[in-house]
């Protein structure tokens, strides 16, 4: 009897953990993350802190903030010490989270179409379209393959690349106020965004 039940448990364990993990296509991976985020946004009666945390986890496992930070800072990245680089990555992650989630939140009731996928070696570009009753907004995700994970390193909304925009405005700020000035500005912004989010809760 004991033997049978342990066999059954054994089989169950094998069934549970042996589901083949394929290096899924980038679109599948991205779709899973986006669906997850939208699902959390639509979930009713969720505590705002819990909601934030859930989204944060989903968001952070699909985006590669180090690659993004490096590409945003470009020349300034190479000149920064590893400590400063880490500080930047942390702040940038917070800022981008607020920016991106804010935008997705506005459109969480709309349909997202996956239009096209292009892969070239370890890069992929996925074209999506947010379809509302009045407009269609093209949002393209640029991903890079790390291990078997496709991670987003740029989001292009209506032809406007986040990395390019940030690079351009951050380099202007660094030129005017130095790297410390940029970090201070980012810190203020993160604080501001966090406090206003706490206030406006339903």
């Amino acid at each position: 009897m004991k033997k049978i039940s342990s066999t059954i448990i054994g089989i169950l364990i094998i069934l549970l953990f042996n589901t083949p993990i394929q290096a899924a296509a980038p679109t599948d991976q991205l779709r899973r993350s986006l669906d997850g985020i939208i699902e959390v946004l639509r979930e009713q009666g969720l505590d705002s802190e819990v909601r934030r945390e859930k989204i944060r986890v989903l968001f952070r496992e699909r985006f590669d903030f180090r690659v993004m930070s490096r590409r945003v800072l470009a020349r300034n990245w190479k000149e920064a010490t590893p400590e400063i680089q880490d500080r930047f990555v942390a702040l940038f992650t917070d800022l981008l989270e607020a920016t991106y989630i804010g935008r997705i939140e506005e459109y969480s009731d709309e349909r997202v179409d996956f239009v096209k996928e292009r892969i070239k070696e370890k890069r992929a570009i996925i074209d999506t379209l947010i379809v509302t009753r009045s407009v269609e907004i093209p949002i393209n995700y640029k991903l890079t393959l790390t291990g078997d994970l496709w991670l987003v390193y740029d989001v292009v909304i209506e032809e406007v690349s986040l990395v390019r925009s940030f690079r351009s405005s951050y380099s202007t700020i660094v030129k005017k106020e130095g790297f410390e000035g940029l970090l201070a500005k980012m810190e203020n912004k993160v604080e501001e965004l966090n406090s206003s989010d706490g206030k406006k809760k339903k």
Binding site: T99, S169, T172, K185, K189
Partner: peptide, 9 residues
């Protein structure tokens, strides 16, 4: 709300 310098953005 979100950008460090809305003008530049």
């Amino acid at each position: 709300k979100e950008s460090l310098d809305p003008y530049l953005f």
